[in-house]
Simulated scan of single mutants.
Amino acid sequence: MPNYPEIVRLHESSASQRSISQMLGTNRNIVSKVIKLVTAHQISYQELAKWETQKMEAHSDHRNQRINAKSILHCRL
Protein backbone atom coordinates (compact mmCIF):
# COMPACT_ATOMS: atom_id res chain seq x y z
CA MET A 1 0.00 0.00 0.00
CA PRO A 2 1.32 3.45 -0.81
CA ASN A 3 2.45 5.50 2.18
CA TYR A 4 -0.12 8.29 1.82
CA PRO A 5 1.07 10.44 4.74
CA GLU A 6 4.68 10.30 3.54
CA ILE A 7 3.66 11.27 0.00
CA VAL A 8 1.86 14.31 1.40
CA ARG A 9 4.71 15.20 3.79
CA LEU A 10 7.26 15.13 0.99
CA HIS A 11 4.96 17.13 -1.28
CA GLU A 12 4.50 19.77 1.43
CA SER A 13 8.30 19.99 1.71
CA SER A 14 8.45 20.88 -2.02
CA ALA A 15 9.70 17.52 -3.32
CA SER A 16 8.79 16.80 -6.93
CA GLN A 17 6.37 14.01 -7.78
CA ARG A 18 9.13 12.15 -9.58
CA SER A 19 11.48 12.32 -6.59
CA ILE A 20 8.68 11.26 -4.21
CA SER A 21 7.96 8.30 -6.46
CA GLN A 22 11.62 7.28 -6.52
CA MET A 23 12.16 7.77 -2.77
CA LEU A 24 9.13 5.72 -1.80
CA GLY A 25 9.16 3.20 -4.63
CA THR A 26 5.59 4.16 -5.53
CA ASN A 27 4.16 4.53 -9.01
CA ARG A 28 4.21 8.17 -10.18
CA ASN A 29 0.53 7.96 -11.12
CA ILE A 30 -0.34 7.05 -7.53
CA VAL A 31 1.77 9.94 -6.21
CA SER A 32 0.01 12.30 -8.61
CA LYS A 33 -3.46 11.07 -7.62
CA VAL A 34 -2.72 11.38 -3.91
CA ILE A 35 -1.41 14.93 -4.33
CA LYS A 36 -4.41 15.96 -6.44
CA LEU A 37 -6.80 14.46 -3.91
CA VAL A 38 -5.29 16.10 -0.84
CA THR A 39 -4.88 19.43 -2.62
CA ALA A 40 -8.47 19.46 -3.86
CA HIS A 41 -9.80 18.65 -0.40
CA GLN A 42 -7.24 20.63 1.61
CA ILE A 43 -5.99 17.65 3.57
CA SER A 44 -2.69 18.37 5.33
CA TYR A 45 0.03 15.96 6.38
CA GLN A 46 -0.85 16.55 10.04
CA GLU A 47 -4.45 15.52 9.45
CA LEU A 48 -3.60 12.56 7.25
CA ALA A 49 -1.01 11.27 9.73
CA LYS A 50 -3.75 10.98 12.37
CA TRP A 51 -5.85 8.65 10.25
CA GLU A 52 -5.66 5.00 11.10
CA THR A 53 -3.70 2.94 8.59
CA GLN A 54 -6.48 0.40 8.69
CA LYS A 55 -8.99 3.00 7.50
CA MET A 56 -6.79 4.01 4.58
CA GLU A 57 -6.14 0.40 3.57
CA ALA A 58 -9.85 -0.31 3.56
CA HIS A 59 -10.38 2.40 0.97
CA SER A 60 -7.67 1.50 -1.52
CA ASP A 61 -7.42 -1.30 -4.06
CA HIS A 62 -3.98 -2.86 -3.58
CA ARG A 63 -4.17 -5.10 -6.63
CA ASN A 64 -4.62 -2.21 -9.03
CA GLN A 65 -3.03 0.46 -6.83
CA ARG A 66 -6.17 2.56 -7.21
CA ILE A 67 -7.33 5.14 -4.77
CA ASN A 68 -11.03 5.41 -4.08
CA ALA A 69 -11.11 9.15 -3.48
CA LYS A 70 -14.66 9.31 -2.13
CA SER A 71 -13.97 6.55 0.36
CA ILE A 72 -10.65 8.02 1.48
CA LEU A 73 -12.40 11.30 2.23
CA HIS A 74 -14.78 9.47 4.56
CA CYS A 75 -11.76 8.77 6.77
CA ARG A 76 -11.89 12.46 7.70
CA LEU A 77 -15.21 12.00 9.45
Rank of each mutant, 00 (worst) to 15 (best):
residue 71 S to V: 07
residue 38 V to S: 05
residue 23 M to G: 12
residue 54 Q to N: 13
residue 28 R to Y: 08
residue 3 N to D: 14
residue 2 P to Q: 11
residue 18 R to E: 13
residue 3 N to K: 11
residue 62 H to S: 09
residue 35 I to S: 04
residue 5 P to I: 02
residue 16 S to Q: 09
residue 4 Y to R: 11
residue 19 S to Y: 09
residue 30 I to V: 15
residue 46 Q to H: 12
residue 6 E to A: 11
residue 49 A to G: 02
residue 41 H to L: 00
residue 48 L to R: 01
residue 60 S to W: 09
residue 64 N to R: 13
residue 64 N to F: 06
residue 49 A to W: 06
residue 63 R to V: 03
residue 27 N to G: 04
residue 46 Q to I: 09
residue 52 E to D: 15
residue 8 V to W: 02
residue 47 E to W: 02
residue 43 I to M: 10
residue 52 E to F: 04
residue 2 P to V: 15
residue 4 Y to S: 14
residue 52 E to C: 07
residue 20 I to Q: 06
residue 46 Q to L: 10
residue 75 C to D: 14
residue 64 N to W: 06
residue 33 K to Y: 03
residue 1 M to N: 07
residue 12 E to F: 00
residue 15 A to W: 15
residue 8 V to A: 03
residue 49 A to Y: 11
residue 30 I to L: 12
residue 67 I to L: 15
residue 40 A to R: 12
residue 73 L to V: 01
residue 72 I to F: 15
residue 4 Y to T: 15
residue 25 G to N: 10
residue 61 D to V: 10
residue 74 H to M: 07
residue 65 Q to E: 10
residue 77 L to R: 13
residue 39 T to A: 12
residue 67 I to Q: 06
residue 6 E to L: 11
residue 77 L to T: 11
residue 42 Q to G: 13
residue 65 Q to A: 09
residue 66 R to K: 11
residue 58 A to L: 10
residue 16 S to K: 10
residue 22 Q to A: 14
residue 73 L to F: 03
residue 70 K to P: 03
residue 11 H to V: 00
residue 67 I to G: 04
residue 2 P to C: 14
residue 44 S to T: 14
residue 41 H to F: 03
residue 71 S to I: 03
residue 75 C to R: 12
residue 23 M to W: 11
residue 71 S to G: 15
residue 20 I to V: 11
residue 47 E to H: 06
residue 38 V to N: 04
residue 25 G to F: 06
residue 49 A to S: 15
residue 21 S to T: 07
residue 54 Q to K: 15
residue 21 S to G: 13
residue 76 R to M: 01
residue 3 N to Y: 09
residue 48 L to Q: 03
residue 18 R to T: 14
residue 63 R to I: 03
